[in-house]
Amino acid sequence: MYIISKVKVLLISLVVLGVSGCVAPPTYVTKGEEFPAMYVEKPKSLLIMPPINLSTAAEAKEYYSTTVEMPIALHGYYTFPYQLTADVLKQQGVYDSELVYDIPLTKFYDYFGADAVLFTKIIHWDTSYTVVASTLTVSIDAEIKSTKTSEVLWHYNGTVVVDLSANGGGGGMAGLLINAIATAINTAAADYTTYAKMANGRFVGSIPYGPYHPMYLKDQQMKLIQQHDEKTEQKPVETGIKHTAN
């Protein structure tokens, strides 16, 4: 019975979140409509490039790089061993993925045999503080580019915003103070890679499944939220995840 009531609470909170989060209703598109080139080229293997770090956190690049392989492989693609390919790229003088982003990508087929290349950009990897609240944001832009044509076959963004403020300290000034202290504690303990994995989950889901997945070439009708990446600022998706101090 305990489980059932928990489910109910979850459902209610989901509904509440859904309702309160309705600023503009999202537009849904199918994978087939949004990423037709993926179904035409049918890449089987993906070379994961070292992340391009646009955030202010220098360590983000190394840390984030450990989270990408697994979800992509579990999505059905052959992923080249990152630890090894990153070293090979360094030996070839590719220290930064920015360097190769705009050049023809055929050489990645020639050496690795990769059908396509996955670029990831770390847009946010930070925590913003205010006295009463703080939020942790991890935001990743991801792109799959063909090694045959160098064209973008797929792109999507995954963002996770976590409210780190501990609510429930009670009202009034005393409550405010407790919250501020709890916030500081939570922020210090925050593990970014946990949220990076969630952000990955958000974009990986929109990739058409790869050849090792049972849903390969069967997911054209699957719906996803259309993202507008030009000019308009990325609207972070609230997760509703609350971190509370224990």
Binding site: E69, M70, A73, Y77, Y78, T79, F80, P81, L84
Partner: peptide, 13 residues
């Protein structure tokens, strides 16, 4: 189950 992609290669490396 199949050994995940890259595991043998990483060990080789």
């Amino acid at each position: 189950v199949r050994v995940p992609p890259g595991v043998y290669a990483n060990l080789g490396y």
